[in-house]
Lab assay of single mutants.
Amino acid sequence: KRPMNAFMVWSKIERRKIMEQSPDMHNAEISKRLGKRWKMLKDSEKIPFIREAERLRLKHMADYPDYK
């Protein structure tokens, strides 16, 4: 399994928030909203998620050195 990228790290957190607020919303609609919101974020707002994704990538490389 591949490590999460910055969007996936961010969307995992945000998806929970949306599901708590709107439990009946369909997954496809949540995904569309998340995509739009991610694109609207400033680069500076994405930095913590980019850093976390990089940390996960490095950990994945250490844990699975033969992964292609």
Rank of each mutant, 00 (worst) to 15 (best):
E45F: 07
R51Y: 08
A62M: 09
F49C: 00
I13T: 10
P48E: 06
K39L: 08
K46I: 04
W10I: 00
I47D: 10
K32T: 07
K36D: 15
K59H: 14
A28D: 15
R37V: 08
M25W: 02
E52S: 01
M19K: 13
Y67A: 14
R57F: 06
L34P: 09
Q21D: 08
P48C: 03
A6V: 03
E54Q: 07
Q21E: 14
Y67T: 12
S31L: 09
R2C: 13
D24H: 08
Q21W: 07
A6E: 07
R37G: 13
P23W: 00
M61Q: 13
W38D: 03
M19E: 11
S44E: 15
S44D: 14
K68V: 06
I13W: 03
R2L: 13
M19Y: 08
G35V: 15
F49A: 02
S31V: 11
D43S: 07
H26M: 09
I47E: 15
P23Y: 03
K42A: 11
M4A: 08
L58Y: 09
K36M: 12
I50E: 15
N27T: 12
F49V: 03
I18Y: 07
I47Y: 09
K36H: 12
M4T: 10
M40C: 09
M40N: 12
A62Y: 10
K17Y: 04
L41G: 03
I13R: 05
E52G: 02
I50W: 05
G35S: 15
W10T: 04
P48Q: 08
L56M: 13
D66H: 10
E52Y: 04
K32H: 12
K42W: 02
M4F: 09
R37T: 15
F7P: 00
M4G: 08
L34Q: 03
E45A: 06
E20I: 04
I18W: 08
A28W: 06
E29I: 01
E52L: 04
R37M: 11
R55Q: 12
R57Y: 08
D66L: 09
L41P: 00
N27A: 14
I50M: 13
P3Q: 14
E14R: 00
K39S: 10
M8I: 10
V9Q: 00
R33W: 14
K17I: 06
K46W: 00
R57W: 10
M25Y: 01
K32E: 15
K46S: 00
I50Q: 12
N27D: 15
I13M: 10
D66N: 09
V9P: 00
M25Q: 01
K17E: 00
L58S: 12
V9T: 02
A28Y: 07
K68R: 05
R16W: 00
L34R: 02
M61V: 13
K17V: 04
S31H: 08
I50Y: 12
F7E: 03
I30H: 02
P65H: 03
M4D: 13
H60Q: 15
R55K: 09
E29P: 01
E20F: 05
I50R: 12
M8N: 10
D24F: 06
G35H: 15
N5Y: 05
E52T: 06
E45R: 00
L58R: 10
P3M: 03
S22A: 11
K1G: 14
R57E: 15
E29H: 03
W10D: 01
S22D: 13
L58W: 09
R16M: 03
M8R: 08
G35Q: 15
V9C: 05
D66Q: 10
W10K: 03
H26V: 07
N5M: 02
L56K: 03
W38K: 06
P23R: 02
D43H: 10
K36I: 15
Y67R: 10
K17D: 04
S31M: 07
N27G: 11
D24E: 10
A53K: 00
A62C: 11
W10H: 01
E45S: 01
I47N: 05
K42N: 13
M8L: 12
R2A: 09
K39A: 12
R33V: 15
R51D: 10
L58N: 13
M19S: 08
F49Q: 02
K12T: 10
W10Q: 00
K39F: 05
A53E: 03
A62P: 13
D24W: 07
G35F: 11
S31Y: 08
E52A: 05
W38C: 03
I13A: 10
P48N: 04
K12A: 14
L34I: 04
M40F: 06
L56Y: 06
P3Y: 11
R37F: 02
S11E: 15
F49H: 02
K36Q: 15
K12H: 12
E29V: 03
F49L: 02
R55E: 12
P65Q: 15
I47V: 11
K68Y: 15
M61F: 07
L58G: 11
H26Y: 06
L58T: 12
S22C: 11
K36E: 15
R16H: 12
M4V: 12
D66E: 15
G35R: 14
D43I: 08
Y67P: 14
S11T: 04
M61T: 13
I30Y: 04
R2Y: 15
M25P: 00
K39Y: 03
S44M: 07
K42G: 09
P48I: 06
H26P: 15
R57P: 06
E45P: 00
H26E: 15
P23I: 01
K32Q: 11
I13D: 09
K1Y: 13
K17T: 05
M40I: 04
I18F: 03
M25T: 07
P48S: 03
P48F: 07
M19L: 13
N5G: 06
F7N: 01
K1I: 12
